[in-house]
């Protein structure tokens, strides 16, 4: 792989806090190596801003290996940037060329208010999980792990849904700012396993109710969420969730 250096123009959303107005600020960054990650490019810029006595750009990040789900930049109009199935932290500067202008925005959704610059408040996702995204089993109640054989295909499909990292890119990409892909990934993860069966109906009803309460929109199946999901969670999970939702709505005892 040939390495190269590049000069870039960055247009970054700056907003001092939740209640203030934001605006774009333009930065020229020089001698960026194609081997850097996108966030390392921001590190370089921030070091410069600090040395110049300016406020560095705040952004969420932690593991920097694409699994914690903290990083969340809307890069040139696409959540997590141009690469398929990639988080912002795994995006590398090879994706860009000398002279490019890059527009970086935070996730935009009523359910994700901006805290500062590119950092948003995603606690709404925690509250959706609290509404029922679990199996109610107290510690110590379990039977032997192999007492319950599970069809491999189902276990695999459940895993594929459970691979969601809760980053919120689906919401960011959706024209309706719907959290359906996130919610359905959890619903499908648990609904595909026999362990999740007893709470299946209540889970889907209360998680969707909570999603609505948090100010997320509804799904109109444009497929944008699936296209940008760094973990390639399938939009068919949403159909599955709808099926469960309809069935639960019609057949609950209450």
């Amino acid at each position: 792989m040939e390495h190269y250096n590049m000069n870039l123009t960055l247009k970054v959303w700056r907003q001092p806090n939740k209640n203030s107005e934001g605006r774009f600020e333009t930065f020229d960054v020089k001698d960026i190596s194609s081997e850097m990650s996108f966030l390392e490019m921001f590190d370089v810029l921030n070091e410069r801003l600090i040395s110049e006595g300016n406020d560095p750009i705040a952004f969420d990040h932690d593991c920097r290996e694409g699994i914690c789900g903290a990083c969340s930049m809307h890069i040139n109009g696409r959540p997590h940037g141009p690469w398929h199935a990639t988080t912002t932290c795994q995006l590398h500067m090879r994706a860009f060329k000398d002279g490019d202008t890059i527009v970086v925005e935070p996730w935009r959704a009523n359910g994700f208010p901006v805290i500062k610059d590119l950092v948003t408040d995603r606690t709404s996702f925690d509250r959706i999980i609290q509404a029922g995204g679990y199996i109610s089993v107290n510690t110590g109640n379990a039977v032997d792990g192999n007492a319950l054989p599970i069809e491999k295909d189902k276990a695999d499909a459940s895993f594929a849904a459970a691979a969601c990292i809760g980053c919120g890119a689906c919401v960011a990409a959706c024209k309706n700012a719907s959290a359906s892909l996130f919610v359905s990934a959890k619903v499908a993860h648990l609904a595909l396993l026999p362990q999740g069966e007893p709470e299946r109906k209540n889970r889907v009803l209360s998680m969707i109710a909570q999603m609505d309460n948090e100010g997320f929109g509804s799904c109109t199946f444009t497929g944008a969420c699936e296209a940008v999901c760094p973990k390639e969670i399938s939009v068919t999970n949403i159909s599955r969730m709808h099926k469960d939702y309809l069935w639960a709505g019609l057949s609950t005892e209450k």
């Binding site: 247009k11 934001g22 109009g77 959704a109 700012a177 719907s178 940008v228």
Partner: peptide, 10 residues
């Protein structure tokens, strides 16, 4: 559901 829109859209 998105009061503030994007500068660049998907």
């Amino acid at each position: 559901k998105r009061k503030q829109g994007y500068q660049v859209n998907l």
